[in-house]
């Protein structure tokens, strides 16, 4: 186990500890007045109607999938960017093909008006 993750561990412990300590201090200072009304779902004043589970627009899924596709592309770009200097032009052409295939997909999404919010 390298010491690389020690920084992450310390950072994570401080971040979690910061929240816990602050909530604990707040708990010491604040008054406690439990009320069943406070547990109601907040619906901007009116009483909530029906279930909170709705069937959402399929557009959300499309956006999430676009996000996944281009994040995977970005993840592939990192090792390429570290290595391409050693390989040169061939590496650039290869990555251009990779990006072009996905750009075609983005173009298709654009033409089908999939990235427009109607």
């Amino acid at each position: 186990m390298s010491e690389l993750y020690l920084t992450f561990a310390v950072f994570g412990a401080v971040a979690v500890g910061f929240v816990c300590v602050n909530l604990f201090i707040a708990r010491l200072a604040r008054p406690s007045a439990p009320n069943p009304d406070k547990l109601e779902t907040y619906e901007c004043g009116p009483l909530p109607v029906g279930e909170a589970w709705q069937q959402f627009n399929v557009h959300y899924y499309l956006f999430a999938l676009l996000f996944v596709v281009f994040e995977v592309e970005a993840a592939f770009l990192y090792p390429w960017a570290v290595a391409y200097k050693q390989v040169g032009r061939y590496a650039v052409v290869e990555m251009l093909i990779f990006v072009a295939i996905l750009a075609a997909g983005l173009g298709y999404a654009w033409r089908r008006k999939a990235i427009e919010w109607e």
Binding site: F76, P79, I97, Y108
Partner: peptide, 30 residues
Amino acid sequence: KALGLGLIGDYALPFEVASLILLAALIGAI
């Protein structure tokens, strides 16, 4: 760097095929 060299060199074809798979997922979802 070793991973990048592998993607450019020995595994160039799977690397390009990966983009086609992503493309297929994208078009399928649309």
